[in-house]
Simulated scan of single mutants.
Amino acid sequence: MRTAIVVGTGLIGTSVALALSRRGVTVYLDDTDTTAARTAEALGAGSLQLPGKQVDLAVLAVPPGRIGAVLARCQLDDLAHTYTDVASVKARPSDEVASAGGDPSSYIGGHPLAGSERSGPLAARADLFEGRPWVLTPSPRTDRASLNRGLELVSLCGGVPVLMDAAGHDRAVALTSHAPHLISSLMAARLEEAESEHIRVSGQGLRDVTRIAAGEPALWGDILEANAEAVTSVLEAFAADLDRLLSVLRAQRSADAAVRARATGELDRILRRGNRGHARVPHKQRARPDEFVAIPVAIPDQPGALAALFSAVSEAEVNVEDVRIEHSIDQPRGLVELLVDPASVAGVRRVLDANGWSRHEDPHAGHGIRSADRAVGSMTGIRNPDPAR
C-alpha cells in the first residue's frame, strides 16, 4: 500500500493515519470539521491536500449511521480502489451500503478493538492498535483485492486480524463493549447527586468501573442505536442476574439461619462465577510505559498557536503520548505539557529550542489541568473537534 485517505480525523481516524504515515504510506486527510483536520495534520497524520489520483485505500472513520452515504459519495468520486471503515457496529452499515447506492465489492467492514474514553485527534496515538484485535467483516460480495488491502491495513497498523460475519461481530461487541459501557454509565450516574463526603472515600475500584462512562454521549448514542437489539439481549440477561443477586442480599437479612446460609452459598457462587469470567478476558499483549516525561511549553493565547506547536514537535518524529493544558481566560498565554517517552525528551527539546518555543519550568505544572480536548477551544478561539468522528 502506497497511498491512503482517512475520512474523519477523530481519535481512531487520526490514529490510523499516524500509524500508516509511520510506515511510509502517503496519507491524505478529509473531514468536514476543519479544526479537527488541521489538528491531525499538525500532528503529522497526513496532508489536507486532495490526492491527485485514485488512492489504494480509503478508511472511513465516521459514525455507523453515516458509513453508507459517505461510502457512496467517495465511490462516486472514484476516490480509492478499496474502502473500509472503523465503526464498532457492522451489520447496519453493511446493509446501508447497497441502499445508499454503494458498491459492496470494493468495501470491507472493519473494527479495530482499541480506543480511549477521550476523543478527538489530540488523543490519537500511532501505536494505538499494536497487538490489538482488528475485526474484518467481508461480505459474500467483497472481492479478493479488497480483503487483501484490509488485511494489509491491519498489518501496517500493528493489529491482529480477525475475520467475522457482521451479525456475529455485533453480538460479540454488545457483550464485550456496548453493554459494559451502559452499565458503567449507570453506575457513574449514581454519583451525580451523591454526598461529597461519600465520593471522597472512593478508591480505585470506583475509578475502574466508571472510567469508560466518560465517553462522548453523541458517539455512543449513535453506536447503541445501531446495535440496539444485540445490546438489549445482553442487558436482559444482566437484569435477570441482578434480580437474583438482590434476592440473595435480601435473604442474608433473614431471621432464619438456614435461609442466610443458603444465601451466603449463592453469593459465593455468584462471586466465583465472576472470577471465572474475568479469567477469560485476554490481557494486553503490549503495555504502555508506566511513566512519561512532561515537557512544559509556554504558548500564546492566539489562533493557530497549538497547531504550530504540534507542527514543530512533529519534526522530532516522536509520538506525543498525552497533552495537558493549563490556561486562564485573563492571561496572555497558557502552559502546555507534552508527555513523551523518556528516550524522546532530548529530540523534542532540541526541536522546540530550534523553533523558538519557550520551555517553561513550572513547579506547579500539571495541577488542575484540564483535558486537552476540552481546553483546545479556549486556547485557540476555535470550537472543539467533533468527538463523534
Rank of each mutant, 00 (worst) to 15 (best):
R2H: 10
L11Q: 06
G13M: 01
R22E: 12
T26A: 14
D30Q: 14
D30A: 15
A40G: 06
L43I: 12
A45W: 04
G52L: 06
R66M: 14
D77N: 07
D78R: 14
V86H: 02
V89W: 03
P93H: 12
A98N: 04
D103E: 13
P104A: 08
Y107C: 02
A114C: 10
R118E: 09
S119I: 05
L122Q: 09
R132T: 08
W134P: 05
L136C: 04
S139F: 03
A166N: 09
A174P: 02
S177L: 13
P180K: 03
A189Y: 13
A189H: 13
A189W: 12
E193W: 05
A194L: 13
S196D: 11
S196E: 15
S202W: 01
G215A: 15
G221C: 13
D222P: 04
L249E: 12
Q252W: 05
G274K: 07
N275S: 14
R288T: 06
P289C: 02
V293P: 00
I295S: 01
V297L: 05
I299T: 04
L306S: 01
A312F: 05
A312M: 04
E321Y: 09
V323C: 07
V323H: 00
L338H: 00
R350Y: 03
H360I: 00
H367S: 08
G368W: 11
P387T: 11
A388N: 05
